[in-house]
């Protein structure tokens, strides 16, 4: 016969166990949230990388309200826009600035410098040089625009790099957070197992033994796809060594690997 101290101890352990189970549930929820955050981060990192030119945003990212992720996505969009702008201007500037300036000097000299009889050209040649001078002048302005666009692209690239670095850091922190939660969970599982053993030792009649027939009926219900409680499941598993499932599933197969 059990003494009152033993019963009290068992009650206390059950309360602790219940608290621990609640704590485990909360930790699992936290771990799921962190894992989800890491998945979003990984998607954002893949999308925001500079060499990824895809403009299609994965739908998980569209829904994200994480400020770090949003900043990385905005930085990526700004970078792609700046890059496209730079490329479109670059396509119309086939020669470098120095060549343009050299040509401008040459044309100005041929048009305005009086070098005597040898420098006199037919008016058609002067007209062509005049047109070319202002065409090169316009081209020089485009080189200026190209340089501005290039600088804007560099700024956008730096912003993207910073956003990506922040996102990576964010992701590493989430990874550490997940590891910490996992460690807490491992400890909680260990403590819960110890507590269950303690409760079982203190109160061996706490749960009535389940007969083989009852276990088999539970198995029938399980196979039929009906719901069974966790306790019933545990009872069934306790008796799993007493019978063999003729059609083993992942859950009932006891074959050791």
């Amino acid at each position: 016969m059990k003494g009152p101290s033993s019963a009290n101890k068992a009650g206390l352990s059950e309360d602790e166990l219940a608290a621990l189970v609640k704590n485990i549930t909360e930790l699992k929820e936290q771990r799921a949230a962190v894992r989800h955050r890491r998945q979003i981060n990984a998607l954002a990192i893949t999308h925001a990388k500079r060499d990824n030119r895809s403009l299609t945003l994965p739908k998980q990212l569209k829904a994200s309200d994480d400020s770090v992720v949003r900043e990385a996505l905005e930085a990526k969009t700004a970078f792609l826009n700046a890059h496209a702008e730079r490329d479109s201007i670059s396509a119309t500037v086939p020669i470098p600035r120095a060549t343009i300036e050299k040509r401008l000097r040459h044309l100005l000299k041929s048009l305005t410098k009086n070098i005597g009889v040898e420098g006199v050209k037919p008016v058609e040649v002067e007209r062509a040089a005049f047109a070319e001078f202002f065409e090169f002048q316009a081209l020089h302005r485009r080189v200026g625009s190209l340089e501005s666009a290039n600088e804007a692209m560099i700024v956008a690239r730096e912003r993207l790099q910073q956003a990506l670095a922040l996102l990576n850091k964010h992701n590493r922190n989430a990874h550490r957070e997940e590891q910490a939660i996992q460690r807490q969970l491992d400890e909680s599982f260990k403590a819960a197992r110890a507590l269950r053993r303690e409760v079982a030792r203190a109160n061996p009649q706490a749960r009535p033994a389940v007969s083989v027939a009852a276990s088999e009926s539970l198995m029938e219900r399980f196979r039929a796809g009906q719901s069974i409680s966790m306790e019933e499941m545990q009872d069934m598993l306790e008796h799993s060594s007493l019978f063999k499932d003729p059609n083993p599933t992942d859950l009932t197969d006891t074959t050791e690997e």
């Binding site: 479109s88 396509a91 086939p94 047109a131 202002f134 090169f136 316009a138």
Partner: peptide, 12 residues
Amino acid sequence: DARDRVDAGQAP
């Protein structure tokens, strides 16, 4: 005209 074309973004 050539200047205006380049200013409008066309190739020289």
